[in-house]
Computed example of a mutant assay.
Amino acid sequence: MSDERELRVYSQQEIEEKLKELPLWRYEKGCILRDFETKNWKETVFLFNAIASLAEAHWHHPDAEVSFKRLRVKFTTHEVNGITDRDFELAKEIEKISSLLLKR
């Protein structure tokens, strides 16, 4: 993966188009974000730790808001002040892992 591709900043229209692949995510205040509803604190922390491990492996870290039965994850590529492929790629990875962890 080239740095040029990674650091290409998407327009709002392009972001909204790409979010069609991630229907549980939305664009808000310069970030793509998703809220996860969990059963309890333990499930919230377990999910957060899994996401934190993925983020560290990708060296791309989200902002997160953690509460008893909810986790909000927000991405932007800070060094270019916009949404890039890094954000979408990690959001897709989070979707995969969350679908396994939050089976209902």
Score class of each variant (00 low, 15 high):
K18T: 05
K18A: 06
L19A: 02
K20P: 03
K20R: 14
E21G: 02
E21S: 09
L22R: 03
L22Q: 03
L24C: 05
W25H: 02
W25G: 00
W25F: 04
R26N: 13
R26T: 14
E28H: 11
E28V: 12
E28I: 10
E28L: 13
E28A: 07
K29N: 15
K29F: 08
K29D: 15
K29M: 07
C31M: 11
C31H: 14
I32D: 06
I32P: 08
L33I: 10
R34D: 11
R34C: 09
D35E: 14
D35G: 08
D35P: 01
F36I: 02
F36Q: 01
F36P: 03
E37R: 09
E37Q: 10
T38M: 10
T38I: 10
K39A: 12
K39W: 00
K39N: 10
K39S: 10
K39I: 02
K39G: 08
N40W: 02
W41H: 13
W41E: 14
W41R: 13
W41F: 15
W41G: 08
K42G: 06
K42Y: 03
E43Y: 01
E43H: 07
E43A: 15
T44Y: 01
T44M: 06
V45P: 00
V45K: 00
V45R: 00
F46D: 15
F46A: 15
L47Y: 03
L47P: 00
L47N: 07
L47C: 10
F48D: 09
F48M: 12
F48T: 14
F48K: 10
F48E: 09
A50Y: 01
A50W: 02
I51S: 07
I51D: 03
I51E: 04
A52K: 02
